[in-house]
Design a protein around this nucleic acid. Sequence first.
DNA 1: ACCGATCTTGACGCCCCCGTCATCTTTCCC
DNA 2: GGGAAAGATGACGGGGGCGTCAAGATCGGT
Lengths: 195, 195
Amino acid sequence: MTQMVLDDGRRARTKASNRAAILLAAREVFAELGFDAAGVRDVTRGTNLASGTFYNYFADKEAVFRAVLDESAQEVRRRLRAVRASAQTLEAFVGDAYRAWFSFLVEDELMFKLMQRNAGPIRSLFGDPILGAGVEELLDDLRAAIARGDLPSLDADYLAGAMAGAALELGVRMAEREPADVEGAARFATELFLG
Amino acid sequence: MTQMVLDDGRRARTKASNRAAILLAAREVFAELGFDAAGVRDVTRGTNLASGTFYNYFADKEAVFRAVLDESAQEVRRRLRAVRASAQTLEAFVGDAYRAWFSFLVEDELMFKLMQRNAGPIRSLFGDPILGAGVEELLDDLRAAIARGDLPSLDADYLAGAMAGAALELGVRMAEREPADVEGAARFATELFLG
DNA sequence: ACCGATCTTGACGCCCCCGTCATCTTTCCC
DNA sequence: GGGAAAGATGACGGGGGCGTCAAGATCGGT
């Protein structure tokens, strides 16, 4: 009898797992060596695939880099959107956002290394700073809060920048502590911006 | 009659000017292409020297990169040290430091681009984040201010990080405004951290 | 069991950049 | 002005990464 092959044939399964293996290896290699220094063969060496196979899944190094970033960027934005949706007070909004952000950095350490090491390539490939989209959403929320009167009439653009910049550098220091100080860093940031 | 040759013989003068030409071209190339993507020949093409001549002045690409960064890092630290030495009040200290920093970014735009684009290489070559030394000095000053009682007993490490992170991101936004908003950004930062 | 379709493999040719060095040019000193 | 030292030049060989592709392996359908 014919087997309806959709996503569960052997073919489709190895295809998915190969793609995943390439993405994982790429994430490690880009975090370790940086986008420019890394080669496609550094990636395939981290899988059990031959170099040529890579090109059945991605057009080139840039394509896999974009895919790696997309994965994690979507996860970050998903978490921050959840916070935004459920926060009741301004203090909860800021504090929970930082908490979510710092938690993410601790859980996905590879992504954090990758972001730090590849700030330049990200900027030049996307024409946008790291977290560009995330900062845009933050900016919208700040403008809304100011319009609503929940925040004094500050320069929202500067405030969003300062919050994002602090998030990055606090993230570095938060992650250096043993154990990682998610709660302390989140409280520090909250007091800084609301106190 | 013998000409005393020290620094003013033809020889010494072209030597200095060649070195300067290479440094300038390198600064432009690294800012434009990034350390990894740039080649030694991209640098020499920006001068009127042949590729081989480069190696009479620097051992390799990394050496000229270090020299370029040293030049500007020294200038930044010189300015910040001057501010630190002359500031009387805490408010002046913070405000003037940010003013000096933002002014520097506006004047040496090339260095700013270079820092943003090459954050990764800088980290991996120096084993230190951008402005690592500058942040260390800031940290010392903050600790002293807290010990003196000029600042409440905060986490100095986090505070230094937040100030540095904000300085970077505010710098980006400050420079985007037309004309560059050195004064406004400095005031914003001062109020954020002292208000 | 078999054949065609799909996927994998790694050797290959290509290109680009590196650092050197034999040769030529300029400067210095008498 | 002339000879020697210092410096500049760019062609060259070497190394490495890229993307391809002909050959082989595996899968799917009958």
